[in-house]
Design a protein around this nucleic acid. Sequence first.
DNA 1: GTTTACTTTCGATTTCTTTCATTGTAAAAC
DNA 2: GTTTTACAATGAAAGAAATCGAAAGTAAAC
Lengths: 253, 253
Amino acid sequence: MYLEERRQAILNLIANHGRVSVSDLSARFDVSEVTIRADLQALAERGLLVRTYGGAISTTYSLQELSLLQRRQQHIPEKQRIGAAGAALIADGEAVFLDSSSTALAVAQHLKSRRDLTLVTNSLVIAQEMLGLTEITVVMPGGTLHHDTVSLIGPDGLAFLEKYHIRKGFFGAYGLSLDAGLTDGSAPESEIKRALVELCHTVIVVADATKWGRVGVTSYASLADVDTVITDDQAPSDLVAQVRAAGVEVVIV
Amino acid sequence: MYLEERRQAILNLIANHGRVSVSDLSARFDVSEVTIRADLQALAERGLLVRTYGGAISTTYSLQELSLLQRRQQHIPEKQRIGAAGAALIADGEAVFLDSSSTALAVAQHLKSRRDLTLVTNSLVIAQEMLGLTEITVVMPGGTLHHDTVSLIGPDGLAFLEKYHIRKGFFGAYGLSLDAGLTDGSAPESEIKRALVELCHTVIVVADATKWGRVGVTSYASLADVDTVITDDQAPSDLVAQVRAAGVEVVIV
DNA sequence: GTTTACTTTCGATTTCTTTCATTGTAAAAC
DNA sequence: GTTTTACAATGAAAGAAATCGAAAGTAAAC
């Protein structure tokens, strides 16, 4: 039996039983456990199964996709620094837009002590965060609730937003690259962002180092649309230099 | 059973029951309580559950804790009965409006197991409550966040809502009386309700016994606009009789 | 005969889990 | 309101199993 046959057989077993153990596979295919481990590692790297201690399980039974609640808890110190830097760009009396990314939420969290601010957002989480802060006016566009981003999405929201003169818009992104510009994971989410990039006088991208060079499903802006990028000190310096050469201000915190 | 499988099973249990206990999990999976605690800690660090003394609860359940409205809600069996009766009036596939009252929230809570529903609401609390229920479409009008009612209010939201064909609207009220009809505490809140009473084919008022005979600052509908009132068995029978005589169906639960 | 891809052996390490003693906590009983 | 009381959490230590790294073995391919 060849390596590829064995690995295919392992995948079949997982498809049928949901789980396999290293010792069982070793006995079944009459190879050492080390070999089986190499198989499982290779298959796991291709995302075909999830490795566990002692075996492997089907990807469908593995831990759930990251929700906003979980994304919120990733890269916390970086996001907080980025959030503080973003909030520092906002003057009292301004109207700003914040999108439904977890980094934009970090910006919002640093606005809590501010007064006389109009905050436009389609993120329910940001709205919730601002509850009780009566000095801050929170405006939301209408739309349909998207469960994964906890935000309101829809064409009617855009018409609503056009009435506002929004000075600055803060946008998160799934990825930030020279060719694809700013990219996101879902198309409808992208659409509302695309319209808002047009609408905002100043476009500020808040993105931690992990976003650099990554490309998502849909683009919502090119780098030419962007005025400022706020990122952390782990951002790859070659990419930062290239983006700066493209005329974008890059703030590193 | 592998570690990942056990942890996934714990998450499933929490998703179904809302809560788990360390001792139950220890017995169920036949591992020590120390191991379960390590599992819960790991899952809590990833934001997949919220740790409590003796067990853990769902993250969405703990978000509810944030809302005073909801906490108040949980201790009032009358509102729950009214909510259940209201939910029973809603057929699958319908589009319904729920306002930002705590009684309308009780209706929403009884819709959680339903499928193929469109729920229009200006209440952030209701939207939050429906998070993760992907079978239910939640639509919100645009507007400005009102901190006291945790709802979106504004003239633009109305134009947005006119596009929807909403069969049934559920309205709470500060007061319900023969002369003043349905009254509320704040004028802008009233305005959006007034428009929606016009819009909805069927107007259903959900109001516990304390609301009868009370009059608030502004009226948003007369009894002639109302099709059904759902209330509890403490409602004053003389008023109930008069309202029935005015042609309104009164459901007592 | 050498190269290449795959596999094995064998310690050293790591991971997972348990036990036990100690400290901490919530809520009932006073 | 405080004191009990029963239960829960934590830290340290230890054992069993799984994993990893590196070197060595095997067999087909060039």
